Lab assay of single mutants.
Amino acid sequence: GSKLPPGWEKRMSRSSGRVYYFNHITNASQWERPSG
């Protein structure tokens, strides 16, 4: 298991139950796992 880039964390969408990734530094969110 590799770590996520700085700022990123795994989140669960309440509406759909899907996992997404959220960056608390930039407030960005995306479905794809961030690389870096």
Rank of each mutant, 00 (worst) to 15 (best):
residue 27 N to T: 06
residue 22 F to E: 05
residue 3 K to M: 14
residue 3 K to A: 14
residue 14 R to M: 11
residue 13 S to A: 10
residue 26 T to D: 04
residue 10 K to A: 13
residue 9 E to Y: 04
residue 9 E to Q: 07
residue 7 G to E: 04
residue 34 P to E: 02
residue 7 G to F: 07
residue 31 W to A: 08
residue 1 G to N: 15
residue 35 S to D: 13
residue 1 G to L: 09
residue 17 G to D: 07
residue 22 F to I: 06
residue 3 K to F: 12
residue 13 S to H: 15
residue 33 R to A: 11
residue 7 G to P: 08
residue 29 S to P: 03
residue 7 G to D: 04
residue 21 Y to D: 01
residue 21 Y to A: 00
residue 3 K to Q: 14
residue 24 H to W: 14
residue 16 S to K: 08
residue 21 Y to H: 00
residue 27 N to I: 04
residue 8 W to Q: 00
residue 33 R to P: 14
residue 20 Y to Q: 02
residue 28 A to T: 15
residue 31 W to G: 05
residue 10 K to E: 14
residue 14 R to E: 12
residue 4 L to H: 01
residue 34 P to F: 01
residue 2 S to N: 13
residue 35 S to I: 13
residue 19 V to Y: 13
residue 34 P to C: 06
residue 19 V to Q: 08
residue 32 E to A: 07
residue 25 I to P: 02
residue 10 K to W: 05
residue 10 K to Y: 06
residue 35 S to P: 12
residue 8 W to E: 00
residue 10 K to I: 15
residue 35 S to W: 10
residue 17 G to M: 06
residue 36 G to Q: 11
residue 16 S to W: 05
residue 25 I to H: 11
residue 34 P to W: 03
residue 34 P to I: 01
residue 4 L to I: 04
residue 31 W to L: 09
residue 11 R to Y: 07
residue 19 V to I: 14
residue 1 G to R: 10
residue 23 N to W: 01
residue 33 R to K: 10
residue 30 Q to P: 00
residue 6 P to Y: 12
residue 35 S to G: 13
residue 28 A to Q: 15
residue 23 N to I: 03
residue 32 E to P: 07
residue 24 H to G: 07
residue 16 S to D: 12
residue 2 S to Q: 12
residue 15 S to T: 13
residue 28 A to D: 07
residue 9 E to R: 05
residue 23 N to G: 00
residue 11 R to G: 03
residue 34 P to G: 01
residue 22 F to W: 09
residue 2 S to G: 14
residue 30 Q to A: 04
residue 4 L to A: 03
residue 23 N to D: 04
residue 9 E to A: 05
residue 3 K to R: 12
residue 27 N to V: 04
residue 11 R to N: 03
residue 35 S to F: 12
residue 7 G to H: 10
residue 34 P to Q: 01
residue 36 G to A: 13
residue 28 A to N: 10
residue 14 R to V: 12
residue 9 E to N: 05
residue 13 S to W: 06
residue 36 G to F: 13
residue 20 Y to P: 02
residue 2 S to K: 10
residue 10 K to M: 15
residue 8 W to S: 00
residue 8 W to G: 00
residue 1 G to Q: 12
residue 8 W to I: 00
residue 29 S to G: 06
residue 20 Y to S: 01
residue 24 H to V: 15
residue 15 S to G: 10
residue 4 L to D: 08
residue 17 G to H: 08
residue 26 T to W: 04
residue 32 E to S: 06
residue 27 N to Y: 07
residue 33 R to H: 13
residue 23 N to R: 00
residue 7 G to K: 01
residue 11 R to E: 02
residue 13 S to G: 06
residue 2 S to V: 11
residue 30 Q to M: 06
residue 29 S to Q: 09
residue 23 N to F: 02
residue 36 G to R: 11
residue 15 S to Y: 09
residue 36 G to I: 13
residue 8 W to D: 00
residue 13 S to T: 10
residue 3 K to P: 14
residue 30 Q to R: 04
residue 20 Y to V: 02
residue 13 S to M: 11
residue 25 I to M: 09
residue 28 A to G: 06
residue 20 Y to K: 01
residue 15 S to H: 13
residue 11 R to W: 03
residue 13 S to V: 11
residue 17 G to R: 06
residue 8 W to N: 00
residue 17 G to F: 03
residue 7 G to C: 09
residue 22 F to Y: 15
residue 16 S to H: 12
residue 6 P to E: 11
residue 18 R to P: 04
residue 34 P to T: 00
residue 28 A to L: 14
residue 6 P to R: 07
residue 4 L to N: 01
residue 3 K to W: 12
residue 28 A to P: 01
residue 29 S to H: 13
residue 16 S to I: 07
residue 13 S to R: 06
residue 20 Y to G: 01
residue 15 S to V: 14
residue 22 F to S: 01
residue 23 N to P: 00
residue 27 N to E: 06
residue 22 F to D: 03
residue 15 S to M: 08
residue 27 N to L: 14
